[in-house]
Design a protein around this nucleic acid. Structure first.
Lengths: 218, 218, 218, 218
DNA sequence: CATGAATGAGTTTTCATTCAT
DNA sequence: AATGAATGAAAACTCATTCAT
């Protein structure tokens, strides 16, 4: 999705009916599908819409994917993994305070996922989990659990250093993750109705203040 | 939904083939529709499935609702309002500490919404907001904003009393709401994959400990 | 197919858009499908053509059959069995000479199968055997083998009575069956090109003369 | 088909990527098409399958044939003619008895047609006659009628010589042809279900014994 | 000559909705 | 008031054919 799904802008002047771009098509199709699935949901998205959005015709997606369901699976699968590799690679590099590192993790998540079209994936999986159980399982293992582990790791270090005082680690992890989820939901489902659009970095800042304050050793 | 959607048990010996059911049918249909919409989404739910789930046949829902979309709207509209009236009626009755009242609000929310089939409504609206903008607007005004206001009210009282120290009220409200949303999402989308199922009341307890600690005046 | 597939003529004056005739629809659909499959083959027959031929619209056949393949199977399955029960019931009733009985079997076959739309089934199976192996197997067991057995039975009696002199029974059975197959093929595939249409009963007569003469004990 | 369809082994080291194959390609394509049409029928055979079977890619058949229908016509047209020329050339050469010559005709037919992939052509035409009337007409004139004439010629000689006693020549011709058709049908449609595979030469032998016996003057 | 990505007309199949019973 | 057979618009999917490379 990182490389494949970065669509090249539709050729400005297509002199011919079409061009052959076997290598980029799959990415363009997934990109288009991601956008529409996130917007309308799996069932409400028509194959022809995906094709049109990708700049091809009805039949072309079928050259690369068996059917609509396979496109959905590919969207999810290719969508998040690489980003996480990046994220996990970054975290843990420095020797700053746990507080600083927690803030870093959250900000980075916002930059590379939350503020990205990929955040829509989460909304998508929330909506379709019951219809695609194996995919939900995959998402749970590869996204939710990894996300929790990243947070848990920082929190545990904070506890070791005596910075944080945490009674129940599982629940503490959740409260850190919760506002991230909320941010994605606001962004993807109700942004049109929020009169004063959230300044998300500032929001995360304030939320972290409260949380870190609440987690701190007294 | 409270009154209408409380289905009378279909087993209660009907005198005629279809004795006067005009009064209970709509509720049974909405109840069935809610269940299926939450499970599978709007598009993936077939009218016939709704009918079967409601114990009637294909044509019957159309006697009470124009079409599938109207059923969806009715499900959302009737689904949450009355519950909120209850909730709002309860809160603010006592003169306990803001901390106590915040805990009460959250627990009551969990009892009357979060732990109820109605929680699925939120998942549903998150998924379908883009397809039903007016409905999303309605939901935003009637559910999200009211929910925020309830929380805000308690927090503001806490600030007035000198119990809480809050820099940005909007953001503080969000961090209180966030774990509630998370709870609903876990419950409705990924509960099958959570090895150790959350003891939700305990979780809310712990989360509130952290939040209240973080919000407290030092 | 006998009863079910006997289509009632389309109601002369349908005042309404359609009428509900759940009991006769399947037969009408199979009847229509048989006609078109025999004419054009399985693949070249469109579902919509079957529907139109049956006097219904596109969607109706799907109320009674999963898909086109199931219709094909039903056509074959229902097509021949009952006729054969009739045939087998008739043969062997009298104590006439083997020659007489052989002639009877052949004539009856012609009346109840060869001269019927059902003969087209054979052409159909010949064409589609490779595409529907299990169905071909079923056809082989239920039609071909039964047909051979009927003939074999008569020939064996003829041998017992000393009427016929047969060196290899298997091959003798085939030579009796062969002209029946030929008759069906001519009728269904090349009848338009035969300048002098065969008088089939006379033809069978002549053929039987030769065969019986050839089989006779000298 | 004899010359064109005799594919040169594709293994013969090509000097260039596609060295002058213009002369052999059409035959290879028809050969592949024949095989697949016979196996699956005209409609169920995909152009791409023909191409793959012929060892080329999708576009190539269109360099040699207008479209799928033209390929079908070419398959039929080129398929049988030359073989018949051979057959007709052979028959009538010697001065043996009519019985001997009849046996010869049948055996030769079996060798050069019945036991060949070309036999599938008959099955194909039986199946597709209604969809390709002009082709069926052509096949009728060039194959069926010629085949009958060959048989008729021998039978007439037999009558002239006083060997055969035939009341109705047309019908006699059919009874001789019938087992040939049967043989092809068995071979191409139901061979998988025949427990004891027929020893076809022996079968033809036995069948001819009966027929010739039946035709003989007493 | 040959390739094979792309097209788009054509089919199959689904399902919300209607309406005779 | 309820049924459920039938409709027909709308989607999903196929594949013969084209044409840039």
């Amino acid at each position: 999705m990182v490389s494949q799904m970065t669509a090249t802008p539709p050729a400005s002047a297509p002199a011919t009916r079409w061009s052959r771009r076997k290598d980029v098509r799959p990415g363009e199709i997934l990109e288009a599908a991601l956008k529409l699935f996130v917007e309308k949901g799996f069932r409400a998205t028509k194959m022809e819409d995906i094709a049109r959005e990708a700049g091809v015709t009805k039949g072309t997606p079928y050259l690369y994917y068996e059917n609509k369901e396979e496109i959905f699976k590919a969207v999810i699968r290719e969508g998040m993994l690489t980003k996480f590799d990046e994220l996990e690679g970054l975290s843990g590099q420095d020797e700053a305070s746990a507080e600083t590192r927690l803030r870093q993790v959250i900000y980075r998540w916002w930059e590379s996922i939350g503020n990205t079209r990929l955040a829509g994936l989460s909304k998508l999986m929330i909506a379709e989990a019951a219809n695609f159980p194996e995919l939900a399982s995959f998402y749970h293992a590869e996204v939710i659990v990894r996300c929790r582990n990243m947070v848990r790791h920082v929190l545990e270090e904070g506890v070791e250093r005596g910075e944080f005082h945490i009674l129940n680690m599982d629940h503490a992890v959740e409260i850190v993750i919760a506002p991230l989820l909320l941010a994605m939901v606001w962004k993807h489902s109700f942004h049109n109705f929020e009169s004063a659009k959230f300044d998300m970095p500032a929001h995360l800042d304030n939320v972290l203040d409260i949380l870190i304050n609440g987690l701190k050793t007294r």
